[in-house]
Every structure is written in C-alpha cells, then in structure tokens.
C-alpha cells in the first residue's frame, strides 16, 4: 500500500512539471501571436501612409483619382517626377532647405550648448538657473502660431521677408530651448572631477568648455543636432509665413501643388518622396549616434 502511494506520488511529481511546461508553452504561443499582431498593427499604422505616398508618386491620374482608392496602381509611371523636375527650380528650393537646416542647426547647437553649460555650472542667486531654464522651455509650450504674427512683423521691419536668414533666425530661436534642455541633462551627468582637474590645471570656464566638456559631449551634440535638423527640415508654418518665392523650402513648395485647378497629387507626392529621402538616408547613417546620444547618462559606465 505504502509502496503504491509512493509510486503514484512519484509519478505525479514527475508528470507535474511536464504538464506545467506544456501549458506554459501554449501560453508562450498565445503571447507571441498577440505580440506579432500588435507589432503588425503598429507597422501598418506607421508604414501604410508612407507606402501610399511612394506608390501615389508613381501613379497615373486615373489611379490616384480612382474610387475606391487603389494602393497599388494598375500601371506605373514616372510622369509626376518628370513634370516636377521640368516645371520647377527644384534645385534652388532644395538648397534653401539644406542651407536653412544646416545653418539653424549649427547655430542652435553652438549657442544652446554654451547656454546649457552656463546654466548647469553657474551658481546664480535666487535659483535663477532653474527659472531661466524653465522659462526657455515655456517658449515651447504654446503653439507656434502664437508667435507667427510677431515674427512676421519683425521680419517685415527688418526687410528679411522671403530670405533664408529669416528662417535661420526663427528656427534657431525655436530649437534653442530644446538644445539647452537636452544639453543641460547631459552636462549634469559629466563627472565634476574632470572640470575640477581642469581648473587646477589652469583652465578658465571658456577653456574648460571647449577643451574638456565639448569633446566629451560629442555623442550628445550629434543627437541634439540630428533632432533639431529634422525639426528644421520638416518645418512648414514659419516657412510658409515668412517666405514667398525666393526662400521657399521644400514643405512650402509641396503645399504649392494645392492649386485652384485642383490637387496635383503626382507632383506633390513625388516631391514628398524627394523630401523624405535625405532625412531617411541621414537617419540610417547616424542612427548609432542617435540612440547612443538619447540614452546617454541612463546607464553609468
């Protein structure tokens, strides 16, 4: 009797983990199916509009005006691109976007990192450091349209309307708070002893910033520069307010295909693809720095 009980118990003990394992395995399958569905949905939501943009740029009029709409056209064409390049000074507008983006990014990273260094190191009375930093952030808390009219008036007075420098100036002002906040966060993570060592070595604040702090901040600078470049490249509101013909950037040109005779979908989407491509290539090229820069300071070495 005792023997049978023991055998039974033993058998149950041996069997139990097996069933548990099987149940777990089924659970795992359920979970992974759910995960794939969630991931798939996410991909559809993010990628289908882009896909639509790309396919539309290769469609004939019949296809892009078809109802119900067709994602994949019956026949492919490069007409949209051909007309786009023939009828527009695309090179000029492309250069506008490039020059405005690069200059405003360079300026905002330069000025912003210096401001951030000052705010993170200076010992101002009345907690002024925090107040100033917060004040800067405040400028990003209201919609950009709020300042659009003042900016328009300022630029008109300066006779800067429809110039690249108007956009460079505006984008720099708009990206500064963002650069300052990212860089303050980074500078505060730098080990203070490095700068103390530099002080003993005879460096003033200016030398400490340029010779010690900035070289060590390269990953953060790159990440910050990428993000502000993307913001400037894609900006539409101020570009459309402050430019008319000469200084138009790509997003403004794109909006120009909404005409009184209708939407020129093929040309608009073709330009959309052309606008997205450089950013995409750039992002792929620097993604290593981007991830590193954004997670800097999260884990101690």
């Amino acid at each position: 009797m005792a023997v049978t009980t023991t055998t039974e118990e033993t058998r149950r003990l041996i069997a139990a983990p097996e069933t548990r394992q099987r149940r777990l395995r089924w659970g795992n399958v359920g979970w992974s199916v759910a995960r794939w569905i969630a991931l798939g949905l996410g991909l559809v939501i993010t990628l289908v509009p882009t896909l639509w943009l790309v396919t539309t740029s290769f469609k004939h009029e019949v296809d892009y005006l078809a109802y119900p709409p067709r994602l994949i056209p019956n026949s492919w064409t490069l007409d949209g691109y051909r007309v786009l390049f023939e009828r527009n000074e695309l090179g000029h507008f492309f250069m506008n976007s490039v020059v405005v983006t690069l200059s405003s990014t360079a300026l905002s990273v330069l000025i912003g990192s210096m401001a951030a260094y000052g705010l993170s190191r200076a010992k101002l009375p009345f907690k002024l450091n925090g107040i100033l930093a917060f004040w800067m952030l405040l400028t990003r808390m209201y919609p950009a349209i709020v300042t659009a009219i003042p900016y328009f008036l300022i630029m008109r007075e300066l006779q800067w309307l429809d110039t690249r420098r108007a956009l460079v100036f505006t984008y720099t002002a708009f990206n500064l708070p963002f650069v300052v906040w990212l860089m303050i966060g980074f500078f505060e993570e730098l080990p203070p002893e490095l700068e103390r060592a530099a002080m003993v070595d005879g460096c003033n604040a200016w030398q400490r910033f340029w010779k010690i702090v900035l070289p060590l901040s390269a990953p953060a600078l790159v990440a910050t520069a990428i993000l502000s470049a993307v913001l400037a490249w894609n900006e539409f509101l101020f570009a459309v307010m402050l430019t008319r013909i000469e200084a138009k950037t790509l997003p403004v040109v794109m909006s120009g295909f909404i005409t009184d005779k209708g939407m020129l979908w093929d040309q608009m989407t073709a330009l959309g693809v052309i606008t997205v491509l450089p950013v995409l290539v750039f992002a792929l090229a620097v993604q290593r720095y981007l991830v590193r820069g954004l997670t800097l300071g999260a884990v101690k070495e």
Binding site: P191, E193, L194, R196, A197, V200, D201, G202
Partner: peptide
C-alpha cells in the same frame, strides 16, 4: 586666487583623466 593661479597640483580619487586625450596629452595639458 583661482586654482590655476596657486601653483598647486592635485591628484583626484577618481583620477579625473581626460578620457578623450592620450596619456601624453593628459600629462602635457596643464
């Protein structure tokens, strides 16, 4: 006087070597 004007040299607990410079440049920096 600022630290750099006191003609003192300091060795820190964490060593505080400048990570982006070679040993030679670390030594020569001051």
């Amino acid at each position: 006087l600022l630290p750099g004007e006191r003609d003192i040299a300091m060795v820190f607990q964490s060593y505080a070597l400048y990570p982006h410079m070679s040993v030679r440049d670390n030594l020569a920096f001051a």
